[in-house]
């Protein structure tokens, strides 16, 4: 039994690659080349993607024609905006390697690093160190 989640990714790949709206049968036929899939399985997956908002569909005759709600690039941009935007919960859901710095701060940091590199390695004290307070 295949996990539906993996199939979701494959179906989205198919729809993003397709030029226009595709029916369930079209997606199934495209995926059929790699392995046999039941029509109802593909239909269930696409229905789920529709309800999650990833796909939109139009009724054509007795069946639906599906297309992606947003392009892959638009989705990625939306996710990155989400990931990088400031919220109070930052650091709880995700852990960032480092946040983007403001230009002035970045300049100051590079300046400090240049100063560090120019010094002989034995001069021990950093520029602004606080005394041990506890």
């Amino acid at each position: 039994m295949e996990r539906l989640g993996d199939l979701e990714a494959e179906v989205m790949d198919q729809l993003w690659a397709a030029r226009g709206p595709v029916s369930v049968r079209g997606v199934r036929d495209a995926l059929q080349s790699t392995r046999p899939l039941a029509y109802t399985t593909v239909m269930t997956v696409m229905d789920r993607l529709f309800h999650k908002g990833w796909l939109v569909r139009d009724r054509v005759g007795r069946s639906y024609q599906y297309r992606p709600a947003l392009s892959r690039g638009e989705y990625t941009a939306r996710m990155m905006r989400d990931v990088l935007s400031t919220t109070d919960d930052r650091g709880l859901a995700l852990l960032h390697f480092v946040d983007t710095m403001a230009p002035a701060e970045y300049e100051a940091l590079q300046e400090a690093l240049r100063w560090h590199r120019s010094r002989p390695p034995r001069a021990a004290e950093p520029p602004c160190v606080e005394g041990e307070t506890s």
Partner: peptide
């Protein structure tokens, strides 16, 4: 894509700690 965060000082300290 995002905004600047008020973590610039923390990043500066983090980097200087690595080179000190």
């Amino acid at each position: 894509t995002g905004m600047f965060h008020a973590t610039g000082t923390a990043t500066t300290e983090r980097v200087l700690r690595l080179v000190t």
